[in-house]
Design a protein around this nucleic acid. Structure first.
Lengths: 338, 338
DNA sequence: TTGTAGGCGTTATCAA
DNA sequence: TTGATAACGCCTACAA
């Protein structure tokens, strides 16, 4: 069916040279000038392309990297991938993208799939919880880079935002403006980013001598619905918070939905700080204050570390790359007069 | 470095059988029951996995599909991919995802990359314009499925929304509510979806005997900025439209930004119908009316058609799958009293 | 049912 | 600098 493209053998025949010589040329070896010309002509005429399969079989490398994320519908992750893919491509690597739909089982399954595909390396946003399947991959000496979340049990390069200080600074802006009852809509309790962000929330309270009311810390699922539901709960409290900090993009969307439905005036009745997605922040009215993660930098860093490991350069392993976030305070945050 | 996993040879040694027998077992052939047990034991003990490279070298198939989209930051496309990837995976195919960043040159380059990777099939959102490089791929008899956009010059399966009628119905809702000056923020003039959506816009005007004012048809780039700019221009017109139809998600975002900045009251001063992304539509206040494309169905259909072609089943080729959209009218659309 | 052997396209070693 | 040749791991006639 599919047309078989020309092989080294064909090029050899065309030029009258041997297979070995052509192979050497392809891999950057020295050949006589007149031979080089002939080879180049043959390659062009025959439209020769290296058969990566055969090459991989010999070299034991596929020049392929697996990327595994919780969801392809999450723009935070796809934006990262966009950068990763582009950088890896420049180095000849292709990227197999999988999402595991937030399911630990699927994560395991897809990880296995990637191993079967003999990827040379893996970039993964680990789900957390049981990580033995990841350890299994590590045991095979396949380079892995974690993104966004850390798994303490596994020695591994990791690239993530400074979540703790991101939350710290966001909440601090609220405290500075007089807020004392600050609600936080956090992620799932057992996820790394959640823990870090809650830690930051608590630490800044302590540093400013503001009492932490445990009832203002509520855990969601990082999805729209929980953002919506939790904000609703905050509203229904006897003494509702004067401001809310939402810790990811989807829940920020949900929170805004609830705010709109309840006709709550921002920032007069309630201040709001969201997470990620500048575009969103600009569209909402009043303009939304948000924590901005260095998305491009995360992807770039992860790709470069992986490339380094693929070159068998294990300098600084395991490296932890904690990138700084930025806080943009806009109209959704108001001041409390006491 | 990387641990070499067990080969058929190893399994053969372990079981005392021959390579051929093991191979037959793997590929579903018949072996004696006692041998089957031994083989299964060996596979488990040795953690044997088929080397896809070697297999591919023999069978001339990589069990890999390439997916090429304009941007990984566009949730419309990534959502489609999410479904595609999942379905293909169930059939043993892995998905190499590339974006071409809206550049025709990059599209060509990445398409070439995929061909070099010897993918068995390709799903692509074609950029349009020069399509000779796509024809080149087709000439190699690699199955291709187009998504979202049609390329008339190339015989190919294609899966897309019924863009014409989507626009028709959206604009019709405005006409029904008394609007006579309806602005359309269209995409780039030479893109397929743009043409179809503008066609629908014009046709519904004609069907309802409403005059088409050419100055109300403005072309953008399907990006946020042009949505913003064009809406701005509409506002500045001597006789601005009473309603706007925006033809993709990003431009809808941009339009809303402009509306917010100019303090235009929706729907009193202007009605608005956007495109895609239900989540967004719910968050904006007043709730946004939108055209909803059948994202899941698009991915599913494309994947299934490709799988069919990969099985060498060319029934109905080239098929055009035009899926129906849905229109959600919400608070952003008002009625004009005359 | 099982085994032998050749070949897929490439790389790499070793002579020439 | 070039060439002959043996792998890489698998599949597949064909023979036993």
């Amino acid at each position: 069916m599919r047309k078989i493209s020309a092989t080294i053998k064909d090029v050899a025949k065309y030029t009258g040279l041997s297979i070995a010589t052509i192979s050497k040329y392809i891999n950057g070896g020295n050949v006589l000038d007149k031979n080089r010309k002939k080879i180049e002509e043959a390659i062009k005429v025959l439209d020769f392309r290296v058969n990566e399969l055969a090459r991989g079989l010999k070299t034991n490398r596929t020049m392929t990297v697996g990327v595994l994320i919780p969801s392809l519908k999450n723009i935070f992750f796809t934006s990262i991938i966009s950068n990763v893919e582009n950088i890896l491509l420049k180095h000849g690597y292709s990227t197999i993208v999988c999402d595991y739909r937030e399911s630990s089982n699927l994560e395991k399954e897809k990880l296995n799939f990637l191993v079967n595909k003999m990827v040379d390396g893996i970039i993964v946003v680990p789900h957390g919880g049981d990580v033995s399947h990841i350890q299994d991959v590590r045991d095979k000496n396949i380079p892995i880079v974690f993104i966004d979340r850390m798994i303490k049990e596994i020695d591994c390069d990791v690239v993530l935002s400074d979540n703790l200080n991101a939350a710290y600074e966001a909440v601090e802006q609220l405290i500075i403006r007089g807020h004392r009852r600050i609600g936080i809509i956090a992620g799932p309790k057992d996820v790394y980013t959640t823990k870090e962000r809650v830690k930051g929330y608590i630490r800044v309270h302590e540093d400013h001598d503001v009492n932490v009311d445990e009832s203002l810390i509520k855990y969601g699922d990082y999805d729209i619905k929980s953002g919506y539901n939790i904000l609703q709960k905050f509203i229904e409290m006897d003494s509702p918070p004067t401001s809310i900090f939402v810790t990811n993009y989807e829940m920020t969307l949900g929170a805004i939905m609830a705010i709109n439905e309840n006709d709550i005036k921002i920032p007069d009745q309630m201040s709001l700080v969201g997470f990620d997605n500048i575009q969103m922040a600009k569209v909402v009215k009043p303009s939304l204050s948000i924590v901005v993660q260095p998305i491009e930098q995360i992807g770039e860093t992860a790709a470069n570390i992986l490339l380094k490991r693929l070159k068998n350069d294990y300098e600084g392993f395991p490296s932890t790359n904690r990138l700084k976030t930025e806080i943009m305070i806009k109209d959704s945050v108001g001041t409390i007069r006491s």
